[in-house]
Design a protein around this nucleic acid. Structure first.
Length: 353
DNA sequence: CATCGATGTTGAG
DNA sequence: TCAACCTCGATGG
């Protein structure tokens, strides 16, 4: 589900709460047992996002590559103070915030290894479970009892049901669990999750187009211009091609094209160079904004009232995405939708003629 | 409660 | 071009 901004947010979360710490790695679900064993007991040394992919570096020349794909998500728990503003805006996920229900969700899925290996000492060590010092966190929990905060990060970020033990039981089928002395990250439903050598990581990144946050400035821009201006492929497809430019998904594609008032069917080679440069700069701007805000914001420059509506209601957030048949916000023409390479492409036939 | 569809990618045919 | 991957919120009965 996530487009580039979410992955950068997740990488930041790892930098804040995992880099520099030793982790015990496991695969409660079992499908990543071998990979987890390779990482177990090592220190996380870096976390980077490139487009929709995230790379976690460990202290023994091994990297974990993760692509969340369509339904992937990370569940963080423990000492994870995140942007409270975003959390408040998005509310809590799933169940109520009630006591008990550690297993919850009725899914006794995480069979296999119960207690799971690397509990740090514990036994008596209450560790940092109880957020005694986390004054900011208390304000997020209506109930007074000390709880272990939970945060789900995918395309959206939501507070989960607080747990009362650390580490909490995994929710659902967890491919990999990374546990430090005070934080834990559970990965569920990824398209890709594998351990790579530094060379292999370099090879993967080499196949990706520029990401504005990784290749800022003119270098990335020039690369995109060179590729786009050489291809007969419609610009609507090129923007989704991760080897052309990284991190753009179906929402950002539709919105970027509308903001440029560009017909999605225009062959790349026919898009004026200045327009390609504008697309890149606009993508850079929207990506930064998304990372900062924790959610997509493609209708910047609105009045305060409209802005509030856009933040509150999902359907009010975009110019054209998910608005098939609804009147264009600019000209009133019904927004068109068509299938392009298996994905829905939304655009205004008049403004983007 | 069953069904549908999705902010993505890969690989088979 | 399309199914598979594999999860969950939205929708309808």
């Amino acid at each position: 589900m996530p487009e580039g901004h979410s992955v950068h947010r997740i990488a930041r979360q790892f930098r804040l709460h995992f880099v520099g710490k030793r982790v015990s790695a496991s695969s409660p679900q079992g499908r990543f047992a071998a990979g987890a064993a390779e990482l177990d007991g090592h220190v996380v040394t870096d976390a980077r996002a490139v487009g929709k992919q995230m790379f976690l570096e460990f202290d023994h020349e091994r990297w974990l590559r993760v692509h969340l794909g369509m339904y992937g998500a990370w569940d963080f728990a423990g000492d994870i103070t995140a942007d409270a503003t975003v959390l408040a805006a998005n509310g809590r996920m799933g169940q109520t915030n009630q006591l008990g229900t550690p297993g919850q969700s009725g899914k006794p899925n995480q069979s296999g290894k119960p207690g799971q290996s690397g509990e740090p000492r514990s036994d008596g060590a209450p560790s940092l479970n109880a957020p005694v010092d986390a004054a900011g966190e208390d304000s997020l929990h209506s109930i007074g009892a000390p709880r272990v905060a939970r945060l789900r990060m995918a395309e959206q970020e939501k507070l989960g049901p607080a747990a009362d033990t650390f580490p909490p039981e995994p929710i659902g089928a967890v491919r990999v669990r990374l546990l430090t002395h005070d934080t834990v990250a559970d990965l569920r439903g990824p398209t890709a999750c594998e351990v790579l050598s530094p060379e292999e990581v370099q090879a993967v990144i080499g196949r990706l187009g520029p990401d504005p946050l990784v290749d800022p400035g003119k270098r990335g821009e020039d690369r995109v211009v060179a590729v786009v201006r050489r291809k007969p492929t419609p610009i609507g497809l090129l923007l989704m091609d991760q080897s052309v430019v990284s991190g753009i998904g179906n929402v950002y594609r539709a919105e970027l094209l509308f903001r440029a008032r560009l017909n999605p069917h225009t062959p790349g080679r026919d898009v004026p160079e200045e327009t390609v440069r504008m697309l890149w700069r606009d993508w850079s701007k929207l990506l930064k904004l998304g990372v900062q805000q924790g959610q997509m914001m493609t209708m910047d420059g609105l009045g305060a009232k409209q802005k509030a509506a856009a933040l509150a209601h999902r359907d009010d957030r975009h110019w054209v995405y998910h608005r098939a048949g609804l009147p264009c916000r600019v000209c009133g023409t019904p927004i068109a939708v068509e299938m392009a390479a298996g994905r829905k492409l939304y655009w205004c036939p008049k403004d983007q003629a």
